[in-house]
Design a protein around this nucleic acid. Structure first.
Length: 604
DNA sequence: ATAGGGTTAG
C-alpha cells in the first residue's frame, strides 16, 4: 500500500520501524508530540517489530501517562519477554501513578506472571482483580485460567473456570491448553468434546496434546473434514507428530496438502518440513525442500544439518556446515548438536572434538549438558572410555542419566565390565526405574559369560517390578500403521508373516548366516536364544514389508530401541537376498540397508 | 469530541 494514499499523521498503516520513526520525527518537528505520543507508543509496541527501547523512551517522555499508556508499555514488556520489568511497571502503576490499573491492565500482567511462573505474584494480582471489581471480566478470568495452567496449578485453573458465569471459546481453549500442558490429554479431549463449538485453537491444542501418538494425525484429518483451515502452528504440531512416529506416507500427504493450499516454506514451515522428512527417512526430500528455500534462515540450516547427521552423512553434513558459515550464518547450539552427532555416528572422533572446541572458543557458545552428552557419546562409541569418563568428571554440571547411559552403552560395545558397573550404578541412583540400564548391564555380563550375574540382575528387576521394555517396530502400508512387538501374533496377516520368517530363515542360513546370540539377555539354551532373535520386532516388520511390497520401494521400519547386532547382520543379508532396500530408524539414527551393506558401515 | 489498549499456540 503506498503511503501517499494516507496522510502521514493519521495513518494507521505504519508497519515498519522506519515509517514509525519518520512519523515520530515529524511529530516532534510540528510540535504535535504530546497529542500523538500515545499513538506513537502503540505503534512502537507492535510485538512484531521488537522496538521495546523506542516504546520505553516515548513512554518516559509522557508526563501523565493514561491507563492506556501504562497498559501498552506493560504489554510491550511482556511480549518482548521482559515480564519481570512488566511487573516492576505494574507496581509503579499501583503506587506512583495518577491512574489505577483497569480491566485491560490485568490480563497483561497476569500473562507476564504466567510466563515467569510467578505463582505468588499472580495469586496476589488475582486477589486485586477481585478487590477492584474485575472478578467477572471474561478476559481477566480467561487469563487467570491460563496463568494457573502455566504454573501447573490445574486445580486452581479449573476452579476459576468453573466459577465463570459466562464462558467463551477462548476460556475453554485456555483450560484445554492447560490440561494439554499438564499431560492430561484425556481431560483435554473431554473438554474439547464438551465445549459448544471448537475453533482453530481448540483443534491445534488437541493435536499438540496427542503429540507422540497417531491420534494427532487423525485429529488433524478430522479437523480438515470440518473445514477448519490449519495455520502454521497447526501444521507444525501435526508434522511434529508425524516426525516422531516416522510416518513418511503421512508426511508426503501433509506436504502435498500444503503445496495445494499454497503455504509458504520460507519460515517455520520449511524447518518443520525438513525435520519431518529427515525423521521419516526421506532425507533426499528434506534436502530438496532445503535447497528450494530462497532465503534460508538459521532454523533451516540447523534442521538439515541435524537431519543429515541422523542419516550418518557426516561428510555432507560437515560440508553444509562449512557452507553455512561461509555465507555468514552464525550457528547456534542446536546446529552444533547436529554436527557433533554426525561425527559421532561415523566415528570421526577427533573432528567432533575439534568442532566442540570451535563452538566454545570461536563461537562463544556455552556447552549445555546435551553437548557434553554428544562429546561423551563420540568418545564412547569409539571405545575411548577413559577419556569419556574424564569428560564426565570435568563437566561443569551434574551428569544426567542420559550421559551415564552413553558410557554404559560404550562399555557394552567395548566389553568393559568395571566401568560399566560403575556407570550403571550412577544411572540407577538417578532413575531407579531405568530398565534399559539393567538390560545393558546384563548384555555386558552375558557377553562375558557371567550367567550368575545375569540371573542376579533378573531377580533384582523382578523384585523391583521392572519389565524389559519390549522392542517395537512399526511400518506404514496402505494408509495404515502396522505395529509389531517381539514374538507378536496379533496381526491379521500373522500366518503369512511367520511363513515369510521361515523362508527368511532358510535363505539366511543358505547365505552362511550364523546367529550372534551374545546380546540375548536370557540365560537360555543356544537354540532358544536363536528363536528369541528370530522374532525380534523389526524382523516381523520386515517380513510384513516383504510380503506387501510389490512396488520395489524401500521397506521403512521405525524401531523404539537400538538395533541389536544380530538384527543388523540379518537385515544386511536380507537387503541382498531379496534385492530390496530396507531403511530402519532406531532410537538414535537411520540405517540404510542395500546390497548387503549398511550406510552406518557397521559403526553405530 | 472520540477512539485507542486486553485473553488462547511461540
Amino acid at each position: 500500500m503506498s503511503s501517499t494514499q494516507f496522510p502521514p499523521f493519521t495513518s494507521t498503516n505504519l508497519n515498519s520501524t522506519e515509517e514509525i520513526k519518520q512519523f515520530h520525527a515529524s511529530a516532534i518537528k510540528t510540535g504535535s508530540f504530546r497529542r500523538l505520543s500515545s499513538r506513537l507508543l502503540t505503534l512502537y509496541s507492535n510485538p512484531k517489530l521488537g522496538n521495546l527501547e523506542y516504546a520505553r523512551s516515548v513512554f518516559d517522555r509522557i508526563s501523565k501517562p493514561s491507563s492506556l499508556c501504562w497498559n501498552t508499555i506493560i504489554k510491550c514488556y511482556v511480549e518482548n519477554n521482559y515480564s519481570q520489568e512488566a511487573l516492576v511497571l505494574f507496581c509503579q502503576l499501583l503506587h506512583q501513578s495518577l491512574v489505577l490499573p483497569d480491566n485491560f491492565t490485568y490480563p497483561c500482567v497476569l500473562k507476564g506472571c504466567g510466563r515467569l511462573n510467578a505463582i505468588e505474584e499472580g495469586k496476589q494480582i488475582h486477589g486485586l482483580t477481585l478487590k477492584c471489581g474485575f472478578g467477572g471480566d471474561i478476559y481477566v478470568q480467561s487469563t487467570l485460567v491460563s496463568f494457573y495452567s502455566k504454573c501447573g496449578e490445574m486445580d486452581l485453573a479449573r476452579t476459576v473456570f468453573d466459577r465463570m458465569s459466562s464462558k467463551d471459546i477462548v476460556s475453554w481453549n485456555c483450560l484445554i491448553n492447560g490440561y494439554v500442558g499438564s499431560g492430561d490429554i484425556g481431560t483435554a479431549r473431554e473438554l474439547f468434546d464438551e465445549m459448544p463449538e471448537q475453533d482453530l485453537f481448540s483443534w491445534t491444542a488437541l493435536i499438540d496434546g496427542y503429540s507422540r501418538f497417531l491420534d494427532a494425525v487423525n485429529v488433524f484429518k478430522a479437523m480438515l473434514k470440518e473445514d477448519v483451515k490449519p495455520n502454521d502452528s497447526t501444521l507444525v504440531s501435526a508434522m511434529s507428530a508425524i516426525s516422531g512416529l516416522g510416518l513418511l506416507e503421512n508426511g508426503i500427504w501433509i506436504h502435498s496438502y500444503m503445496d495445494k493450499n499454497k503455504y509458504e516454506y520460507n519460515g517455520v514451515l520449511g524447518t518443520s518440513l525438513i525435520d519431518m522428512y529427515s525423521k521419516c527417512g526421506g532425507i533426499e526430500s528434506a534436502l530438496s525442500i532445503f535447497h528450494a528455500i530462497s532465503r534460508k534462515k538459521l532454523g533451516h540450516w540447523s534442521a538439515i544439518i541435524v537431519g543429515m547427521g541422523m542419516h550418518g552423512m557426516a561428510k555432507e553434513t560437515l560440508e553444509l556446515f562449512e557452507e553455512m558459515k561461509r555465507v555468514g550464518m552464525r550457528p547456534h547450539g542446536i546446529t552444533f548438536i547436529g554436527v557433533l552427532n554426525a561425527c559421532s555416528h561415523t566415528g570421526e572422533v577427533n573432528q567432533g572434538l575439534h568442532y566442540f572446541q570451535q563452538m566454545v572458543n570461536e563461537y562463544r557458545i556455552a556447552p549445555t549438558i546435551e553437548h557434553y552428552g554428544c562429546a561423551v557419546d563420540l568418545l564412547c562409541r569409539a571405545g575411548r572410555l577413559e577419556e569419556a569418563k574424564n569428560v564426565i568428571d570435568k563437566m561443569p554440571m551434574k551428569p544426567n542419566e542420559i550421559i551415564w547411559m552413553s558410557l554404559l552403552s560404550g562399555c557394552r560395545n567395548h566389553g568393559n565390565i568395571d566401568l560399566g558397573e560403575y556407570a550403571a550404578k550412577r544411572v540407577i541412583e538417578l532413575d531407579p526405574m531405568a530398565t534399559g540400564c539393567y538390560v545393558l548391564l546384563s548384555n555386558i555380563y552375558a557377553a562375558a559369560g557371567l550367567w550368575d550375574k545375569v540371573s542376579e540382575l533378573r531377580k533384582v528387576m523382578k523384585a523391583e517390578g521392572l519389565a524389559k521394555d519390549p522392542g517395537r517396530s512399526s511400518i506404514e502400508h496402505g494408509g495404515m500403521v502396522h505395529n509389531f512387538i517381539v514374538g507378536d501374533r496379533a496381526h491379521p496377516q500373522t500366518k503369512d508373516i511367520y511363513s515369510k520368517l521361515n523362508d527368511m530363515k532358510k535363505r539366511l542360513h543358505a547365505a552362511g548366516y550364523k546367529p550372534d546370540t551374545t546380546q540375548v539377555l536370557l540365560c537360555l539354551e543356544e537354540k532358544d536364544k536363536e528363536a528369541e532373535l528370530a522374532y525380534h520386532s523389526e524382523r516381523l516388520a520386515i517380513a510384513f514389508g516383504l510380503i506387501n511390497n510389490e512396488t520395489g520401494k524401500p521397506i521403512r521400519v521405525v524401531k523404539n530401541l537400538r538395533v541389536c547386532n544380530d538384527c543388523h547382520v540379518v537385515t544386511k543379508l536380507l537387503s541382498e537376498i531379496y534385492s530390496c532396500e530396507i531403511i530402519v530408524r532406531d532410537n538414535r539414527r537411520f540405517h540404510h540397508f542395500k546390497n548387503g551393506l549398511c550406510s552406518c558401515r557397521d559403526y553405530w
